[in-house]
Design a protein around this nucleic acid. Structure first.
Lengths: 350, 350
DNA sequence: CTGTTAGCGCCTTCAG
DNA sequence: CTGAAGGCGCTAACAG
């Protein structure tokens, strides 16, 4: 049997209540007994039993992170951000992956909300139903959504609009005028926002986005990028730069298609991606892209949980957004730049 | 306040103990009261409080997974495997990342072993000290090690020796005789085993591994692969194939260097990696490599935890190993194959 | 077969 | 400033 609060109380000759108080720095206890207690704790190697404590305090000291899947580099980065904060504040963290299956999602709710295993929940790319949400409210469980919005709850995520705006501006500043825009299907929530950012930058530059250069790809795969690039490159006045807002993988396909067509990147065609996927730096040429502050988002999400918890679940419904940053590598160049004037030189120009 | 066992007891007119028994299918309770209780549970929406239950049962129903970091695709895959099993068996899982810092590692032990927050621990790429281990034993906590061995405890992990053997055989079967071998530094535990596998295959083919073709790279980065490849390609009789046992990123560097030197992969140089990193499939040409059954390893690890727990912590010290599988893509070809005889055709040949 | 009695390990009143 | 008492939600022994 592990050593309990009683053991130390007995050893010092006080009651458990006294020991409890010194542990929790409660009502000023005489320095004398306080020290005696602390010494006994040390000698006995006593550690409070968190479960017991949680039981009386009516909390779990644990937060859950729910997502369809964690097997993606972006989910991972967010997770890392959350984890660091969680540990630092002495909480626990459990992962709940739903695999996109409703059944599991429901069981999440059942277990989480009813067995009171978590005090708060961070939802990543997940949308809870109204009934699930109200079940959370009943249990006074706080919810924070990343990359999705649920009215009445805090939410946060990268600013797709500004990210796309920055990418477009970058291309524009390099002298490009015929920009192609490869977007994800509108069913993905961020697609609309990225398009807004693109349009805004174009309009500010006095340019009208050309219809035939705005393509929607079915997914963010390399194949999709290849297909789209073929269409683009077959046009009479082909674009001098393409912004693969659908993602870096897509951009990889564009580069690949361009090279297959005998074009050099970035001399003949500039390409910029989105997301800073691990492959981005490995491509030839290395892909310029937008990096989202994922770890920071994760950390902030936990911060919001804590704040909400502190306020006793008072719904704040804060909505925050964090700015992506442009990562310049070798896939973009001044329009019409000669070979020899390569990406490396651009980098130093900033 | 959530509904408790008392509430349902009161509603039915029995004592909490009775309710507890029907929940746990204990000593045969009259069907009549049993049904009444069940109905009440249903009506009230009662769910047992796991924390309270664990307190009296002296368990946590939770297993911990400790690793220096979870922020890698391989760690995540293992985690996914664990998670699925954990959920299925109704347990909980907490993540403990040590960041390779001893201080944290100690606190892991302190918290885990003394606050009794977990019944078992899966250690991933982690080596616990003797004193930590005996502390686990005292707490009757079971330990399973993945990718590291601790005597007296169960352990498992991918079979690096067989993996490397398979990779080497593959190259050999393609007619290659001058194989280069890029290994991780011997400080990484798997390096030795992969080298053994390589040597075994070579010896079986009657080949003596050439010293100058066996390089050690400082890390598994693309840069390391680039550097190593430069050395290899500058040799008089350069290798016709390279096995980047250090990892896929390294292989990416080799491919890049080869292409920069005007060689075509796989026609002029075959390259095989290790690990099936997400980028492997995206490279040009797509990289052949070895895929480790990570999810399966995770699942099995939890299986071992359960078995050990069931046996009441009787130390079994089982040692298991799982076989990687060869993933053939486009980066390997028959030695001396002409352009046109590409990887695609090989694929179908198997 | 069911109810009562004791806790699990801890914390918070409420008296002293 | 400290002790005693009561209880968090649940279950294992005992009685009845």
């Amino acid at each position: 049997m592990a050593v309990t609060i009683k053991d130390v109380a007995k050893k010092v000759g006080v009651t458990p209540a006294t020991v409890s108080m010194v542990i929790n720095n409660k009502s000023r206890i005489s320095l004398a007994t306080r020290n005696k207690v602390l010494r006994a704790i040390e000698e006995l190697g006593y550690y409070p039993h968190e479960g017991a404590r949680n039981l009386v305090l009516k909390r779990s000291n644990t937060i859950g992170v729910a997502a369809p899947s964690f097997i993606s580099t972006s989910a991972l980065e967010i997770l890392a951000g959350i984890e660091a904060e969680v540990r630092q504040s002495g909480h626990n963290m459990v992962l709940i992956s739903t695999h996109g299956m409703e059944q599991i999602e429901d069981s999440v709710v059942a277990r989480v909300a009813r067995e009171r295993k978590v005090d708060g929940l961070i939802a990543l790319n997940l949308q809870f139903t109204q009934s699930q949400q109200s079940s959370f409210r009943e249990q006074k469980l706080v919810l924070v959504a990343i990359e999705s919005e649920m009215s009445g709850w805090d939410s946060l995520g990268p600013d797709h609009r500004e990210g796309a705006y920055a990418a477009t501006k970058h291309l524009l500043s390099l002298g490009h005028r015929r920009l192609a825009f490869l977007n994800a299907p509108p069913s993905l929530s961020f697609a609309k926002q990225r398009e807004e950012g693109f349009r805004k930058a174009m309009l500010e530059a006095g340019l009208e986005p050309a219809r035939q250069r705005m393509l929607v790809v079915p997914d963010a795969s390399k194949e999709s990028g290849l297909e789209a690039a073929k269409i683009l490159l077959a046009q009479d006045t082909r674009p001098t730069a393409v912004f693969a807002a659908a993602g870096d993988l897509c951009a990889a396909g564009v580069i690949s298609a361009a090279q297959a067509a005998g074009l050099k990147v970035p001399e003949d065609l500039s390409v910029i991606g989105y997301g800073d996927h691990p492959v981005a730096a490995l491509l030839e040429p290395a892909l310029s892209t937008l990096r989202e502050p994922l770890a920071q988002i994760g950390a902030r999400a936990f911060g919001m949980i804590k704040a909400a918890l502190a306020e006793g679940g008072g719904h704040r419904a804060v909505r925050e957004t964090q700015l992506p940053v442009l990562v310049e590598r070798q896939s973009c160049a001044f329009m019409g730049s000669k070979p020899g004037f390569n990406g490396q030189m651009k980098d130093s120009g900033r």
